[in-house]
């Protein structure tokens, strides 16, 4: 893929020296903010914790072995389930929303897109805190349901509240990539399918879904990855009833002063995400092949 696109994009007259120079900022960025920190995390995972945090000798595999205790695997599993459900609900709401936006006039599309990203203008913690006020037993949701005889209900400090919070927090990251791929979709294809007698479900399944799949996968990753590592929402909306892997890692660094085990947990999450991104990359390759 790289050879084809870069050959296509490259402008004539750019010497190899210029190209090498222009890649320095990116390489420096990768080295300082990615390679070195990652190397440190890997190294820390095999060391012993110091009294006030930090790391010291000797080298040990204990931290890696501890990862396989059922307690930590259960936390990881429940984090994956929470993040997966949040991604699923974000898709369920985000896809129709993106589709609806593409049907608007271009002025209204701009307005709708601003509305989608508008919540990002408010601090993430404050938006999450607002949910506490909505969801608690004396809150608007419970009171509202009480009025019609369905309440009061207990939502705050449950796993459902955490999933709701994650879905809410990251849904714009689902809508935007799907919207972008819907934009690129040639409406003629849908018209042709319609003229040839394909019903709405068939048009969705055979045209809309496959052709927007790259956007959907990107959106799913954008929601899943930050959800998996989130520790603010489980703490504020889960009330400690729904611990996620992010909380566990945070606690190793800021409460247990166990940087080595925190690093080992981070590597576990990283390994999981690498696998997921590899699956996504191979899926994207396949869908490009279909496109051609």
């Amino acid at each position: 893929m790289t050879s084809r696109t870069s050959a296509g994009v490259r402008r004539h007259g750019d010497g190899p020296l210029l190209r090498a120079l222009s890649s320095i900022p990116a390489l420096g960025y990768l080295l300082v903010l990615m390679v070195i920190p990652l190397g440190l995390v890997i190294a820390y995972a095999f060391l012993t914790s110091g009294r006030f945090g930090g790391v010291q000798g000797p080298v040990t595999f204990d931290n890696i072995a501890r990862l396989f205790q059922p307690l930590y695997l259960e936390v990881l599993l429940s984090s994956v389930v929470n993040a997966g459900l949040a991604t699923f609900f974000a898709f369920l709401i985000g896809f129709p929303a993106a589709l609806a936006i593409t049907r608007l006039s271009s002025t209204w599309q701009t307005v709708a897109l601003i509305a989608v990203v508008l919540p990002f203008w408010t601090n993430f913690l404050i938006r999450t805190y607002a949910w506490i006020l909505l969801l608690n037993r004396e809150g608007i949701l419970s009171d509202g349901l009480s009025l019609i005889g369905l309440g009061p209900i207990e939502v705050l400090y449950t796993r459902e509240a955490v999933i709701l919070g994650l879905t809410y927090a990251y849904i714009p990251l689902m809508v935007l990539p799907i919207y972008a791929s819907l934009q690129r979709l040639d409406p003629v294809l849908l018209e042709a399918a319609c003229n040839l007698g394909a019903g709405p479900w068939r048009r969705f399944r055979t045209i809309l879904l496959p052709l927007t799949m790259p956007g959907i996968i990107t959106g799913c990753l954008f929601v899943f990855i930050p959800s998996l590592g989130n520790f603010v929402i489980p703490e504020l909306l889960g009330g400690g009833n729904s611990q996620m892997i992010g909380n566990l890692i945070r606690d190793q660094f800021l409460k247990s002063r166990d940087w080595p085990f925190g690093s080992a947990l981070s590597l576990l999450v990283l390994a999981l995400l690498v696998i997921i991104v590899m699956i996504q990359a191979s899926a994207a390759r396949r869908s490009r092949k279909w496109g051609a």
């Binding site: 110091g50 009294r51 006030f52 945090g53 930090g54 603010v232 703490e235 800021l254 940087w259």
Partner: peptide, 12 residues
């Protein structure tokens, strides 16, 4: 304060 803590430290 509770949630967004800056991590720093070292050993001694």
């Amino acid at each position: 304060g509770a949630v967004l803590l800056a991590a720093c430290g070292g050993s001694s």
